Amino acid sequence: MANANRQFHVTEAATLHALVRAQPLATLVVAQGGALHANHIPLYLDPARGPHGTLIGHVARANGLWPLLPQTAVAVFHGPQAYVSPSWYPSKAVDGKQVPTWNYAAVHAHGTLAAMDDPARLRSLLHTLSEQHEAHRPAPWRIDDAPPDYIDKLLRAIVGIELAVERWEGIWKVSQNRTDADRAGVVQGLLAEGTPAAADMAVLVGVPR
C-alpha cells in the first residue's frame, strides 16, 4: 500500500478497526525460506492489548503455519469493492478521456505473529470468538453447549495465533479523485447494478472523506 495515492490513505484507528470487525476473515501472509505462506483465517481484534492492538485466532494443528512462528506477518482485511465503469462519469461526454477502474477498501495489519498452545488460554479464546459472532442471535450458541470431552478433543487439534500489530495501513479508493458530479454518477451507476457489493461501495463513494 505504500505506493498508493496518498489521498486514498486512511489512518483513523476507529475506521480501520470497524472494517476489521465487519470483515474478520483475513488473508494472513508469512514469508519463510524464500516462500510466501498464505492462510485465510478469521481474526478477532483486541484493541486493548498492545499499543496498536492484537489480532487473535486459531488454526488446525495440521496447518503448516504455526511451526514457522514467531514470524513477521501481514493480515489483509477486504472491505467493499466494485468495478467502476467510465460510462458513469458525466465528464466522459466532454473529451472521452476516461477509463475503467476498481474501487475498494482494505486494511493491512503488520506485526509479529506468534503461536499460543496453552489449553486454558485456548479455551478462553474460543469463548471470546464464539461470543463475538453469536451475541446478536436470539439464542446464542456457547462453547459450554457442547460436551466437555468433545471440546477437550477439539482443543488438542488446534493452535492459537496472535498477531501483535505494529503498524496499520488503510486504503479507501472510493472515487475521491473524481469531481462531485462524477462521484454522483458513480453512486447512481453502482446502485443500478443492484448487487449488495455495489450498494456497499455506493455508500462509501457517497460519503465525503
Rank of each mutant, 00 (worst) to 15 (best):
Q23N: 07
E162D: 08
P147N: 03
H9G: 07
D46G: 08
Y89K: 08
A197R: 12
A181F: 05
D46Q: 05
L126G: 02
W102R: 01
N177I: 10
A26E: 06
S85I: 10
H52C: 11
D118R: 07
M201N: 06
H37V: 10
A22F: 01
A48K: 09
R61K: 13
F77D: 03
P90R: 05
P147S: 03
D46C: 07
V94F: 13
A13I: 13
N3A: 13
K92G: 03
G64C: 00
Q98S: 12
Q98L: 10
F8K: 03
G96E: 03
L154W: 07
G64K: 09
S87M: 10
P42W: 04
V20H: 01
K97Q: 12
E193A: 08
S85F: 02
A164Y: 02
L45H: 07
G50H: 05
Y89E: 02
H110M: 00
V94R: 14
D152T: 10
Q132R: 15
R209K: 12
A114L: 00
P70T: 00
H40L: 15
H136W: 07
P24W: 07
W141C: 09
G34A: 09
L45R: 06
L16H: 04
P148L: 10
D46S: 08
A181H: 03
V74H: 04
R6H: 15
T54M: 09
L55F: 03
A197F: 10
P90F: 07
A26T: 07
D180T: 14
I143L: 15
A62D: 09
L28N: 03
R183H: 04
L55C: 02
R156I: 06
S175W: 03
G189V: 07
A48Q: 14
G79H: 10
A2S: 15
V186L: 11
P208C: 07
G79R: 09
H78N: 09
W88R: 05
L68K: 08
L154N: 11
K92Q: 11
P140Q: 10
P148T: 11
A197D: 15
A48G: 12
A62V: 09
P148Q: 12
A38P: 09
G33E: 12
V107A: 02
Q176R: 14
Y44Q: 13
E193L: 13
A146C: 08
L125P: 04
I171M: 09
R61G: 06
R49V: 15
R61A: 13
Q81W: 00
W102V: 02
A109L: 05
H58G: 01
